[in-house]
Amino acid sequence: MTSSGSTSSRATVLDGIRRAHNRGPLDAQAQEVLRQGIKTPGSRVVPARAQGDHAHHLALFAEMAQAVAATLVRVDGWAGVPEAVADYLKGHNLPTDLAVAPDPRLDGLAGHGLFTVRRGPALPQDVVGVAAAFGGIAETGTLMLVSGPDTPTSLNFLPDVHVVVVAASDIGGTYEEAWARLRLRYPATLPRTVNLITGPSRTGDIEQTIQLGAHGPRRLHIVLVDDRAQA
């Protein structure tokens, strides 16, 4: 809520910038031009690969995510999510105690007989976390998750296994599309945390050998929900 360090440091820095440019503070008109620039971000260089129709975006999203060692399954409608999660966990011999985001779209998991479900942020001992994404970006196979009471950030980092459910209708081609959606949904201020997640945690810090599962999740499993038919 405060700007500090010291007020003199602030003045020293700003004066230093202005002196270097041989000018005082920008005049009102120049400031207004820059303010408008912030409000209306112009067009940018966008990779051609991220153009195309929605089917292309879904295919590209799946391809790019799997290229960075995420696994992905497509299910038809939200009702298919619990079974898809169960199949994945059984297939990899993983525990069925789940920490699940309070997002109402994930309510179905509690009803599935296989799971013991706790809703809320992750605890240190949680092995499997299930989260719902705000969207996906086909360009690089990237998930976008935002913090909030229904979507605690700790689920994305503490558990060993990160299962993310994302609606096909929320997948776009580019980051720019994702920003536009985000501004529309959160016009006043961004959520505290916006995570762009591209594959599971990894490191190359020992002899440049890539190892998965550094400090974050060892596995990232994406459940892509085809919700277009219902929409």
Partner: peptide
């Protein structure tokens, strides 16, 4: 040489009153 790093995280202010972590 990655297309994108695993985690790119945007932090905006402290946790909100309704948040359960952060």
């Amino acid at each position: 040489g990655q297309e994108f790093s695993s985690y790119t995280t945007f932090s905006t202010g402290p946790r909100r009153p309704e948040d359960t972590d952060g």
